[in-house]
Design a protein around this nucleic acid. Structure first.
Lengths: 221, 221
DNA sequence: TTTTGTGAACTAGTTCACAGCT
DNA sequence: AGCTGTGAACTAGTTCACAAAA
């Protein structure tokens, strides 16, 4: 047993693509674990979830020697490594900005709770909404109260579900409060200082890109 | 005036990245057009929206010679070209599957309506929901009625906001009804036959990937 | 034997840099 | 002079293929 717990941390820089795949691997492992499977090889994992075996190995090997030659990976062990790598071994506190339809839907989205995310609250400027709760019970706070709550509640991720025109203002505010990761659902590109990670989820762009492929695929009308 | 209306259509195959950028360019042009700007150079467009000028030119040049040397691009003209390339010069009919929080929020999302998308309806299996409408007025239909509505309503895009366990079933059904583009919001990877375009929007993965970057960025605890 | 971990080969995507048009 | 369109150079990402370990 040589190189266990290599755990490169600040290293060469891992791409967004790799980070996303690590999350996907974790989900696949969760499924296999629920089925009672004990070990899995990169080949089987790849076949079952339509991934590439070499890529799985390379992605994992970057963080340590988690596999056993001739056997594969011990699922429970690898899950725990992945959770640590992804920072999901502790509770991750999340604030959602904008208590409109989308913000409320996200607040109650069961997928978040499953992987260790804690939705601390919804934040909005509309006085009529403040003090109420989402159907799932997430409280709606005044946006102005975020500043004092941010540190106390240890908010590490901000989710933006506000109108495009308000988005940059909210970004500036949350960055000022020490938030270093933002997931943006509003259209249009935002500026963040370096050291802050911004992830855009732009449904309009995704939709237009689907329409593009439909259009390109058809040679007829 | 040489090569106008090159309009490569089945050509070399354009990547997903390019398709997304085309949609972004269109949005930027819309903004400039609203401001009353008449022409724009790739350089100015790039600076204003933090893009790369050479990439803009290359992306556009692939579809035709839309620019004028020494001048740039005529905004209205380029907008119209991009709309045609993206298939947004006609109404695109969309069906949303799953009338839960997320499906309802998507149905009422103003961004869709803006770019020529028409939300034909929400489809769900829950009898208690069928016959009702979203707050924005989108009707909820029985999932079983999709088969007969699909062709008549010319549905070309299916949006999936159903639980993971139900997703593959819905995919199979809509593909059987002739739908060739699917936007999937549920977690887990789905299988589609070749010729069908699937776009995954996996918020859990995006969130985990943010958490990853937070974890990697901090050398301390 | 099986399967990992990994250099090398390959493929895709981006940016540079400049000839050529307006 | 200014800006496009594009080959060439470069960078990033993926897959292959195999030596080494269990």
């Amino acid at each position: 047993m040589i190189n266990r717990n290599k755990l490169k941390t600040g290293g060469d820089r891992v791409s967004e693509l790799t980070a996303g795949r690590l999350a996907v691997y974790l989900r696949c492992l969760n499924l296999l674990d629920t089925d009672g499977t004990k070990t899995v090889s990169s080949k089987v994992l790849a076949e079952q979830f339509h991934l590439n075996a070499a890529q799985i190995r390379k992605d994992l090997a970057y963080f340590g020697e988690f596999g056993v030659r001739g056997v594969g990976y011990y699922i429970k062990e690898l899950k725990s490594h992945l959770r640590q790598i992804l920072g999901l071994d502790r509770k991750v506190h999340v604030a959602i900005f904008g208590a409109g339809n989308l913000g409320m839907a996200l607040a109650d989205y069961p997928g978040f709770r499953q992987e260790g995310f804690v939705i601390v609250g919804l934040f909005d400027t509309a006085h009529s909404k403040v003090g109420h709760r989402s159907r799932g019970g997430v409280r709606i706070f005044d946006l102005a109260d975020f500043r004092k709550m941010a540190r106390k509640e240890r908010i590490s991720i901000a989710v933006l579900a506000v109108p495009a025109a308000a988005a940059q203002g909210v970004v500036n505010m949350v960055v000022g409060c020490g938030v270093r990761a933002i997931m943006n659902f509003s259209p249009g590109s935002l500026k963040v200082p370096s050291g802050v990670k911004l992830k855009n989820v732009d449904v309009t762009v995704s939709m237009a890109s689907l329409s593009f492929f439909l259009t390109q695929g058809n040679t007829d009308g």
